[in-house]
């Protein structure tokens, strides 16, 4: 017996070990993309079986499908195909409900970038945090600049709300789709942008009340009876205040 005998019963049984994969592998290899309405105009959205992987505003790609595809290819090096459906929960999330529950695919990012985006995802709707807060949240307090770069490269804006991260001086700062879009998004979430900018002008970074200090957009600060502005962490500590456990104010 040489193994070349196709009538060999063992060889035949071995042939029975060939099986189709449990799922069509095109689904694991391809990215799917579609257009969907968003809070700042139409969006082009790509997703994989893991989750949403890429979001661009139509305006940011000149309303051109090919530009979107080129950028997707440059970043992901995966084949891309047009989908007829939208990932579960995405439409709701873009209307302001349940963004945290929509799966995202961040596999193309570095561990640092993933950490930055995962921490950013915790910022509640209607609130903002400075870049330094994100840096503290991921245990890299000195990496404030790198945090800014990672947020600028956020492949899934809106779903991961990098528009809620602002400069430590209180000004709104840069945004992947431009500062003007950032302000529109914050206003759409009923963040009190005018008050934030007023505080920034008077260089108030924290709000003290009831023995604790908060970021100005924290629920506790907004409902405080006797709020007072504080310019620095040192001032807050000197006043005998402890950090709020809701908004965990850091540098």
């Amino acid at each position: 017996m040489t193994g070349e005998d196709s009538h060999d019963p063992l060889a035949l049984r071995l042939g029975g070990l060939a099986v189709a994969p449990p799922r069509d592998l095109t689904g694991s290899v391809y990215g799917d993309w579609t257009r969907v309405d968003g809070p700042v105009g139409e969006l082009l959205v790509a997703f994989t079986e893991v989750g949403v992987s890429y979001i661009r505003t139509a305006a940011s790609v000149g309303d051109d499908d090919d530009t979107f595809r080129e950028r997707f290819h440059a970043l992901f090096q995966r084949p891309l195909r047009r989908a007829s459906d939208v990932p579960a929960g995405l439409r709701q999330a873009l209307r302001g409900h349940g963004a945290a529950g929509v799966a995202v695919d961040l596999r193309v990012l570095t561990p640092f970038e993933r950490d930055v985006l995962t921490a950013t995802r915790e910022i509640p709707t209607g609130q903002t945090r400075p870049y330094a807060w994100v840096a503290h949240a991921i245990g890299r307090p000195k990496a404030v600049r790198a945090v800014g770069t990672a947020l600028g490269n956020n492949p899934v804006p809106l779903l991961i709300p990098c528009h809620r991260v602002t400069r430590s001086d209180g000004s709104l700062g840069q945004y992947v789709f431009g500062a003007e879009v950032k302000e529109r998004l914050l206003r759409a979430e009923e963040t009190n942008v005018d008050e934030l900018l007023d505080l920034a002008r008077s260089r108030v970074a924290y709000v003290g009340s009831g023995g604790v200090y908060c970021y100005p957009t924290c629920t506790r600060a907004r409902t405080a009876a006797d709020p007072r502005g504080l310019r620095t962490l040192a001032a807050a500590r000197a006043a005998g205040l402890r950090p709020c456990e809701l908004c965990t104010p850091a540098g």
């Binding site: 070990l17 099986v19 592998l25 391809y30």
Partner: peptide, 18 residues
Amino acid sequence: IDAGFAGMVRAYQRVVYS
């Protein structure tokens, strides 16, 4: 390539997976 590659996956996924 994006339109054509699915044909390669479908034709050979059984062999590759097995």
